[in-house]
Nucleic acid binder design. Structure first.
Length: 280
DNA sequence: ATGATGTCCTGGGCGC
DNA sequence: TGCGCCCAGGACATCA
């Protein structure tokens, strides 16, 4: 399920193939995603050139030369792949196909249809409902201990759930929330406002580290995620705790008889993995 | 204001 | 083998 690193990977790949290309056509077979794709979508993007491709939270953005931007979210099962027009055979859940100058296709496939495709004025993108209430980007300079203190001071929910809240910080999904808390040595059950300054610093450091590592590894894959060229990501092999219930944690020196390995609990309705010995 | 819960959606994996 | 059930997930709506 695409989190920040996966979108970063998608964005990097799309930049290699689709930057400065003109959109020749847009074909939509199913408008019913998490949000309905606007009726005007095809008309608004056809014959426009893609002038900038970037990531914003868990979305990637295709900025066009006509003042519009396409906002794209992959939900949890969505993939975008680059295919060539002459070999393309439509798959069951291909919902959107953009053809660009030169015959390359950008194919969006999403079995579970949790994704989203929308269009807005580029100048107003920060006011779009997807972004206007968002917190900071994890790689932004201002993502520091003071910022986190301010955001968490009134929050009594567990820190694991708080990390998934885009109003606090964007881009962290269920996998990297568990991973970051493990490396920070903080229990996912801790009340958000109970973290000390030292812990907040450690948490920020861990978040940046796990995201950065995942980006360098090309995004992770549980079962759904594929890089745009079809190659499956591989960072899941090095998850420390996510999906590792009952196993030893990395470099484990815990009393395994006592801890019985990595634990799984549900927090905020989401599965969470942690080591009772290393996370306090 | 905050948080808890439900909703969207489908395929894969499981138990019987 | 096949059926029913549960789970995965991000964002948002709707309650208390």
């Amino acid at each position: 399920m695409p989190e920040l690193p996966e979108i970063e990977t998608v964005k990097n790949y799309l930049n290699k193939v689709f930057l400065n290309k003109e959109i020749i056509s847009a074909k939509i077979t199913n408008r019913r995603l998490r949000k309905l794709i606007p009726d005007s979508f095809e008309k608004e993007i056809t014959n426009a050139e893609i002038v900038k491709i970037y990531r914003k939270a868990k979305y990637f953005i295709l900025e066009l030369d006509n003042g519009k931007s396409i906002i794209w979210h992959l939900g949890m099962s969505g993939t975008v792949e680059n295919k060539s027009k002459k070999n393309y055979q439509k798959l069951k859940h291909d919902h959107v196909v953009l053809e660009v100058d030169g015959g390359e296709l950008l194919v969006y496939n999403d079995a579970r249809r949790f994704g989203m495709v929308d269009i807005c004025e580029s100048a107003e993108i920060n006011q779009h409902s997807c972004f206007r209430d968002n917190g900071i980007e994890p790689f932004e300079k201002g993502f520091d201990e003071k910022y986190l203190k301010e955001k968490l001071k009134s929050k009594r929910i567990n820190i694991k759930t708080a990390l998934l809240d885009p109003k606090v910080v964007v881009g962290i999904g269920n996998i990297y929330a568990s991973e970051a808390l493990y490396y920070a040595g903080i229990s996912p059950f801790r009340e958000s406002n109970s973290l000390t300054k030292v812990e907040r610093n450690k948490l920020i450091e861990s978040i940046v580290m796990v995201l950065d590592r995942a980006i360098k590894a090309g995004g992770s894959s549980i079962r759904d995620y594929k890089k745009p060229d079809g190659e499956v990501g591989y960072f899941s092999l090095s998850h420390a705790v996510y999906g590792k219930e009952g196993q030893k944690c990395p470099n484990c020196n815990c009393d395994f008889e006592k801890t019985e390995g990595i634990k799984k609990s549900f927090l905020g309705g989401r599965s969470s993995f942690y080591c009772v010995s290393k996370q306090k």
